[in-house]
Amino acid sequence: MKKAKNLNFEQSYIVEGFSIAGPKEDKGNLTGLFDEVLDDDKCNECTFEKAEVAMFKKALYGVTNKAKLNVDDVDVVIGGDLLNQIVSASFAVRNLSPSFIGIYNACATFAESLLLGASLVNSRCYEKVMCISGSHFSTAERQYRYPLELGVLRSPVSQWTATGVGSTLLSSQGTPFNSRVTGGRFGRVVDYGTYDVNNMGAAMAPSAVDTLLNFFEMNGKSPKDYDAIYTGDLGLLGSGIFVDMLLKKGIDMEETRYNDCGGMLFSQKQMTLQGGSGAACSALVFNSLILNELKGNYRKVLLLGTGALMSPVTGFQGESIPCITHCVELSAGEPL
């Protein structure tokens, strides 16, 4: 099988990141790391869908304010969410001046937007690109599962869709002190025949393994070349399978610090079973914890955004769950 090459970027600087989380997310393991926390996950709106749009807007303005810029300074916004027809992201940018690229790769949307954004600024097509992605527990639950108030027993392998939005501003102009997106790899769609829509972690793990193996094969590196490797939302079970599968293929994740954004987001007490999931997981953790770590502790980090590409319709029609993983390589800037 012919394999595409890895991506390499010279001048894709990360200007700033912004994260806005729901109240439950802030009570997890990452308390206090988010730029903004909602008191009420309905954002004083009448529906959860409107609340999700409001969250996207807050993140959109939040990151530009933090970078001391105006939304008009942004050339293009690349973003998506989990809802049908990616309405939250596109409604949030309506009547604003930046161009908009709407993308969907389920929970891998954020990694996808970073890679696309980095490609656009690196090629000097645009100067400033905003990557934005998020999800909302209550809207995702309604679309993919049951009404909120329905009393059903949750499967022990299920995960909890995170509420939040993360946005990152990339630029072709930067200083040596800025962290950079230095490379990456768009994944291919991998399906190992998992049918259980509750068991997203098990469905997505093989695709994460596939992308990481191809990435390492192409650049000749191994986990020890990175200070930390994060997967998007494999959850506790999924990340366990991910590590075990890699070990059986001769790659030991013990050589680096490995963590899963979904698995680390919630604490065990919060009864989320296998941890968080959703497009918000990697977007929240990247724009809070990972960017902070890049400012001091870590030099090189990999983010593997994982996404399950099914819909409720395909599930009912007896289709298995195809998954995708995009790999983003990040480098810290010069220490200040």
Binding site: G193, T194, G240, D244, M245
Partner: peptide
């Protein structure tokens, strides 16, 4: 997962279903 999946020398598309069943809670 490592403990429960130790009987599987390789995980591939064919045995993935039984592997997941072995390691999942």
């Amino acid at each position: 997962v490592k403990e429960k999946g130790r009987d599987f020398n390789d995980v591939n598309m064919q045995n993935y279903k039984s592997y997941v069943f072995a390691v999942m809670p």
